[in-house]
Structure formats: C-alpha cells, structure tokens
Write a protein that binds this DNA or RNA. Structure first.
Length: 195
DNA sequence: GTGAGGATCGTCT
DNA sequence: GACGATCCTCACA
C-alpha cells in the first residue's frame, strides 16, 4: 500500500476543471506548516469552469482577486469569504484560460493533533469536524490567503503540494455543487463514497 | 435530528 | 452599499 508518492506535474492540471477535479480525488494534499507536515486525502472537490460558468469567480472577467485563475495551471488560489473563512482552489487549463477546482473536504492523515489545535477542537475530534468543508480544511491545514495564494503546488520546494500515493479510487459520485446561487444544478461536485 | 439566523470583511458596482 | 464557492449556535420537534 505504501508505494512511493509522486508529486503531480503541471500537465496534470493543464486540463478541464472537470477532469482535474475527477482525478484529484484520492490524492494527498500536503502543507509544510512551521516545520511539521500536515496532510490529508482529497475526498470531495468541485469544478469551476471559468467564463462559461456563472458560479465561477472568473465569470466576471479578470480582476485583482481572481488573477490566479487566469494564470498557469497548478497554482493555489486562496480567497476569503463571508468575512471569516478561507477556501483553497488550484488553477486549471493553460495560461490565459481561467478555471479551477475547489477543495471541499479531506480525510486527515498526518498532523492530526496540530489540525485539532488550529481548529480549536479536542484531540479526538472526528475527521468531519477537522477537515470536512472548504473553510474547515483551510483552518486545519493552516492555510491563509496572505501566505498561500499564488503558491505553485507542482514545485518540489513548495510549502503546499499534492501527491499521488498510489491510492486506488473505487467509486466517484457526482452531485450538484453546494452553497452557490447560480448554475447550481450542474453536477460538478465530486466525492469519494468510501475513504 | 433538523432548520433558521448571525458573524464579519474583502471585493466589486 | 450589497453580497458571498461558510460555519457555528441555538431553538424546537
């Protein structure tokens, strides 16, 4: 089971957000936080298509906030929402074409006690309480806009990276996206049914 | 167990 | 000046 883990290359992200979202399930998100490794398996994501998707931040055109989505693929896009939460995305498609994938939930693997502390929870907190939700997983992983927006997740020395550890994905379920008001009916949310 | 409402601020009009 | 790719708490059943 413990095969060598491989850092996902930029070409992995240079595809449509739907494809990238689909293939990101089961991969491992890792953040080097103050000398400690925090990591979790990706179990829920959503695709945001760009100029053709009214729910996407990129739909309105390029602005200071969403510039990362219009840049090269494989870059972390972190934004602040509702005055209290951060959400983590990774950019997709070639340079110049906007698109991204939102990380909605992880299954925590390493650094559980640090995650619990960052979330303000007890050591024995359930995975869902720790990293089940876009805002929660950012808090648990120590991710903020100032520090992580614009980071290249395909570089070997990046604080934020995504690996393939050989985990075999069994069943993927597609459902409508959560918490949006426009184009809410499109099935662009993907999740693993058995982590 | 389920549902309503509040917190709180960066970003765009 | 309005609103949002959310989360938490507190009623009520």
């Amino acid at each position: 089971m413990t095969t060598q883990r491989k850092l996902l290359p930029r070409s992995f992200y240079q595809r449509s957000p739907e494809m990238v979202a689909h293939h990101l399930l089961g991969k491992v998100l890792t953040h080097h936080y103050r000398g400690e490794e925090l990591s979790g398996r990706v179990i829920e994501v959503e695709a945001y298509l760009g100029l053709t998707d009214p729910a996407s931040h990129a739909f309105i055109g390029k602005t200071a906030r969403n510039a990362v989505l219009f840049g090269p693929p494989g870059i972390a896009y972190v934004y602040f929402i509702y005055g209290m939460h951060y959400c983590l995305n990774v950019s997709c498609l070639p340079d110049g074409e906007p698109g991204g994938v939102l990380f909605r939930a992880l299954f925590p693997l390493k650094g559980l006690s640090t995650m619990a502390r960052l979330r303000g929870l007890a050591e024995n907190a359930k995975p869902k309480q720790l990293t089940g939700g876009p805002g929660r997983l950012c808090e648990a992983m120590g991710i903020s806009r100032e520090a992580q927006n614009g980071i290249d997740v395909t570089r070997h020395h990046s604080a934020l990276q995504i690996f393939d550890d050989g985990y075999e994905v069994k069943t993927i379920t597609a459902t409508p996206r959560i918490g949006i008001s426009k184009a809410a009916e499109r099935p662009l949310r993907f999740l693993l049914t058995s982590p």
